[in-house]
Simulated assay, not measured.
Amino acid sequence: MTPKVDTLQYFSIILFILFNSRIYVSAGNNANYTVCKNNPFSCGNITNVGYPFWGGNRPQFCGRRGFGLTCQNGQPDVPVINRMGTTNGAESFNAIVVSINTTSNTMSLVQNLFSQNTSISCENLIRNETKITLSQPFKFSPLVANMNLFFDCNNTSTTNYGGRLKFVTCDEANTTINLPYYVDKPENAGNISKLCPIKRVFPVLKSELDELKKGNVNLSRVLNKGFEVKYTVDFNTCTTCQNSGGVCGSSADNKMRFTCYCQDGTHTAHCPIPGAQISVKCLNIIFCELCVDLPFQMMILVFLLQG
């Protein structure tokens, strides 16, 4: 006859396995995992964008604060990023998203003041004070430079600055008033405000600014091309989460805290090791089809082993 193993021994063995082999109990499908996995953001020329972006059918917990996108319906649809950075150190601003490169982690943006392939008047440039600064997790890419535009300049005095002020025209019929000038180098802009009382600063692509200086493009073209922004989030942690079979997101109660959504539930960095998973199914006991808690399951397992 095979000797019976004491119940306490079975119980001790099971506890040892649970705490030393990282075995966990599957809680079934995680709704957040399913939603984030199956709902990337798409709008216009932006398709299938995932973490850290969210918007539309993609809830905020699937992305990070500051990366919210909306889709402005039109012909074609236009994706817009909401409340990014600051304007004059005050309110955040919205910008049209031209493209997103998830390899270089960059976005090409155009200010809402401008839209691609449209003319821009001097009046609109003056009325909209749009000096933009960015804060983490955003910063201008090395491809961007500030273009300084000056208005209401004293045309008879600009020659005193050795040609550092350059004349450009706005796209309107009458450009004899409020003619803008731009400065080749930021350090040359200091005393020009005495000649030109109105100053506006716009981030633009360096390549487009160079073409403007050569006279190959107009002001509208430069502003319509927008600028490039680089963004930084917890990419290493997200990669670890994805490699473990999870989906990257943020905590529902803290949109800045990373969360890894897995099929079994929510974890801080990655999903549990698949090879060490035990899936405990619901037990049909008399009239109830409910999953029982782990201690009771262990008691049942001990009882069966003894029998």
Score class of each variant (00 low, 15 high):
Leu205Cys: 03
Arg200Trp: 03
Phe202Asn: 10
Phe53Gly: 07
Phe296Cys: 05
Val78Met: 13
Gly307His: 07
Phe202Trp: 11
Ala269Trp: 01
Phe53Val: 05
Gly265Gln: 07
Thr159Phe: 10
Ser279Cys: 05
Asn57Phe: 09
Thr118Tyr: 04
Leu179His: 05
Asn124Glu: 11
Leu223Ala: 03
Ile23Asn: 13
Ser141Met: 02
Gly246Ile: 04
Leu195Ser: 09
Gln72Pro: 00
Leu223Pro: 02
Ala276Glu: 10
Ile126Trp: 04
Phe227Glu: 05
Pro3Gly: 11
Gln297Arg: 11
Val168His: 03
Thr87His: 05
Arg127Trp: 08
Leu125Ser: 07
Lys199Val: 14
Tyr261Ser: 05
Trp54Ala: 12
Ser108Asp: 15
Thr106Ile: 07
Gly28Gln: 09
Asn224Thr: 09
Ile120Tyr: 01
Gln136Glu: 14
Asn224Phe: 07
Tyr161Cys: 13
Thr159Leu: 11
Asn154Cys: 04
Asn48Arg: 08
Val302Ser: 09
Glu208Arg: 15
Lys214Asp: 06
Pro142Arg: 03
Gly56Lys: 01
Ala90Leu: 14
Thr70Arg: 13
Arg64Glu: 13
Ser99Gln: 10
Phe151Ile: 05
Leu209Asn: 04
Thr240Arg: 15
Lys139Trp: 00
Gly245Lys: 12
Asn160Met: 14
Lys131Thr: 12
Gln9Asp: 14
Val25Ser: 13
Gly226Met: 05
Gly246His: 04
Tyr181Asn: 03
Gly74Asn: 06
Gln242Ile: 15
Lys225Met: 14
Ser279Tyr: 06
Thr118Trp: 01
Ile286Thr: 14
Thr232Arg: 09
Trp54Gln: 12
Ile273Gln: 11
Gly245Phe: 11
Leu15Ile: 12
Leu205Trp: 03
Thr268Leu: 11
Pro295Val: 06
Lys206Leu: 09
Ile23Phe: 11
Lys199Cys: 11
Asp171Phe: 00
Gly74Lys: 09
